[in-house]
Structure formats: C-alpha cells, structure tokens
Simulated assay, not measured.
Amino acid sequence: MKVAVIGLGAMGSLALWQLAQQGVKAVGFEQFGLADARTGVGGESRLFRTAYKEGPQYVPLLKRARVLWRELEAQTGQALLHLNGGLTIGHPADEAIARVLQSIEQFAIDHQRLAPAEARARFPAHRFSDDEVVIFDRESGYLRPELAVTSALRRARDLGAEVHGHSPVARVEQRGDGVWLELAGAWQRFDKVLVTAGGWVKRLYPALGSPVFTRKLILSWFPARDIAAFSPERFPIFTRRSQGYFSFGVPSLEGSMVKVGISTPGHVVEHPDQVDLRISEAELADTRHVIQHFLNGLDPDPVRSSGHLDAYSADSHAVIGHPPGQPGVLLVGGFSGHGFKLAPAIGEAATALLLGRPAPVSVSAFNLHRLPVFH
C-alpha cells in the first residue's frame, strides 16, 4: 500500500512515523520547510496536560500519547517530553474545572488540590485569589515541538518513508483506481491519503465551511527579575481562566525568558497565505493584562512575540473522518490549539484507520460527520 500524508506538522509527522513503522510505503508532503514556524509547530514548547479541561474523553489518548512520546525518544535519542507538573487555576463554577476534576477522578490522575495559602507558598510566581481552585497535576509538563517534528520525520525517513518539503498539494481527487494528488501541475496516485493540513485544511476542503476555521495564536516571551524562579523545577506549566482571561505558560527553557500565551475569541484568519504573523501592540493587550494582574516577577514588555496558525472547530474538538465521496481519504484536523500533545496517539489511530484496523484508542467521538455541513 502507498499512502500520502499532506501536511507534516504535528499530526502529519507523527503519522508518517507510525505508517513507516507498519512497513507502509509512506510519502509526506509539506508546503513549507520542515517544522516551519508559520504552522502550529513553532514556539519552542507545547503543554502536555493530563487532567484535561477539554474533557475526560481525551485522557486515554493522552496516556497512550505519553507512551508513544517515550517510544520516539528511545528511537531517536532525543528528550522531547518533560514532566515537571502542571497547574490548573480557575473558578469552581467554571465548567473547565469540573472537567479537570472529572478527568482526575475517572482516571486516577496523580494530583493535589491546593488551598490558596498553600498555592501561594509553593508557587509564588502566581497570584491566587481566595475563591480560585488550584490543582497541581503531577502527570503534566511540556514538549519541544520543533525537535519532536524533526525527530519524527528523521525516524520515518530512516524507516523508509519519503519526506518532501516545499511541496504544496493543490488538489485531492478520489478516482476509481485510488486517490490522486496534484503537485506542481502533475498528478500522483496513492492508495490512501491522510490530510493533516492544519490551518490550511479549507484550501483543500472548502466544504468544511464555517464549522472549521483558522485562528492566529499569539505567543510571547517575557524577561524575569529572577529567572531562577521560573525554572522547570520551580515553575510548572499552567493554564488559567481568571476574570475572563484564559492564559497558559511554560517555564524558562533556556534561562533568560518565560513564555506566556493567551487564548481569546477572535484572531480568525480568512486567508492563511495572506495573514501577517507579526504581533501588533493591540494584540498584546490581553497578554500584558495577564502578566500585570496574575503573575509576579515578569516585566510586561515582551522581548519576543510570534503568531502561529491552527485550525479550530466550532465545538473546539478534533475533526477526524472520511470526506463525503472520498473513502480513500482520511481528514484529521481542527484540534483547536490543544492537539500537539496528542499527536503520536492520533498518528497511531490514523494509521490503523487507513489500514482498515480498529484504532488502539478510539477516536469515534471526533467523527467529522457530527459537523452540520455533513449532516
């Protein structure tokens, strides 16, 4: 069987590795260079959370992903996943807190629930209100995304896969003898095709309509008065929803600055090829608010900011399935800014589905046919 993978970001690179491990003749196509910062891969770190605010249905995939990240580390000799713990901070009435607690209870996740006074003593870089819930998840940490993607692609190549950068796919057509891709005006035939095009997925599948859209993610790095206070040993990863602001952060990985990001409505991108990925002062306003009101010891002026594109779905959950009339195509996308940690488990599941096997961990909850455009 010959399988093409379109888009070699998080999902595509890890899927190509999984396909190659199964002995499949796999060919990957990426429109940019490998691990390009314009995709959802850039930014030096990604959160790995296990007590999951998006819902307990993700926890089996997360546990499987952790096993596979360790497997990739063993095969490549690269340190990719660092479990330094993670904080979830929010109001007890927040549905996200309820889902985190449900994940913990259902899957016996190693954790502590901290009183505000204890949280202040242990994690002085944060400001905690007396009415906030603080949960410390010992099974959380961070990933190195660029290193993870390039490591997966190198390993896939070592196992026999082909990797083609700067190779945009213009069209995908299901025909009687297979699936055909148009590249640089020429057509190539494959038995199956996996589409993991991230923020560019609607260029190939405009029928996804409004339920799937591209957003610009904003990441910023801030100098600290005492950078040692933000080391991985003292500053766990965090997600926080306070006063309507949803923020997240990662410890200092290189000893000079701390990454803090925000996730707010807006920043929708109609044409990803034309978007300006630079960050304006207006776009930094919410991040500055977070730094000034919820964190201690960081200067509010970032030393660096960057924009990255990802595909979101209307319900913020993944979109996985066969587009109508294309049984040889598997579409995987819409991870809504929280997919990187899941990539090896999704790659494994996609490989199984392409080969006509049951997925080791079910992804049926994310079937694309739940979208109104496919009803």
Rank of each mutant, 00 (worst) to 15 (best):
S151C: 06
G86K: 06
L153I: 08
R288Q: 08
F32I: 00
S362Q: 00
E348S: 04
V172C: 03
H271S: 09
L309T: 03
Q243Y: 13
S242Q: 15
F335K: 05
F294T: 06
R225F: 15
R38L: 03
I97S: 06
R157F: 14
F235R: 05
Q18D: 08
L62N: 02
Q292M: 13
A152C: 06
V100G: 01
R155T: 05
Q243G: 08
D94W: 14
D301T: 13
R304L: 07
N296C: 07
T239I: 13
L81Y: 06
V268C: 09
Y58N: 02
G297C: 04
D130L: 05
R215M: 12
A184Q: 08
I109F: 06
D36M: 09
R155D: 05
L159T: 00
L354V: 07
K341H: 10
L342Q: 00
G347S: 04
V59H: 03
S242N: 10
L114W: 07
G185V: 05
A93S: 14
L253Q: 13
G255V: 05
S220H: 11
G249M: 00
N84I: 09
R120F: 09
H369A: 11
A282V: 07
A184I: 02
F374L: 07
D301I: 09
H164L: 10
A282P: 07
F32C: 00
G307H: 00
A197P: 03
F248C: 05
E54P: 13
M1G: 08
W69Y: 03
A121V: 10
G178T: 11
A115E: 15
L284C: 11
A79M: 13
Q188E: 14
A51R: 02
E270T: 11
Q326F: 07
G244W: 12
I218M: 05
A51P: 05
R171F: 07
A229T: 09
F294R: 01
Y205C: 01
V100P: 08
V275I: 15
V193C: 03
A108K: 10
P358L: 08
Q22M: 09
V268M: 08
Q174N: 10
A365D: 15
E348F: 04
A35L: 02
R70Q: 09
E95H: 13
D36P: 11
L371H: 12
I237V: 15
L194C: 09
L277I: 06
V163N: 03
I291E: 04
G90W: 03
I109W: 06
L147N: 12
L68T: 01
T88E: 15
V41R: 06
K341Q: 15
V179K: 04
E162H: 12
V269T: 02
L330C: 08
V275K: 01
Q106P: 09
P60H: 08
N84G: 13
Y312E: 01
W221C: 01
A93P: 08
Q102G: 07
A156H: 03
R357P: 08
S336G: 04
V27H: 14
L208E: 13
R113H: 14
V319I: 02
L208S: 09
A148Y: 06
D301V: 12
P223L: 05
P124G: 00
L8C: 01
R155M: 14
H267Q: 11
G9I: 11
P223W: 10
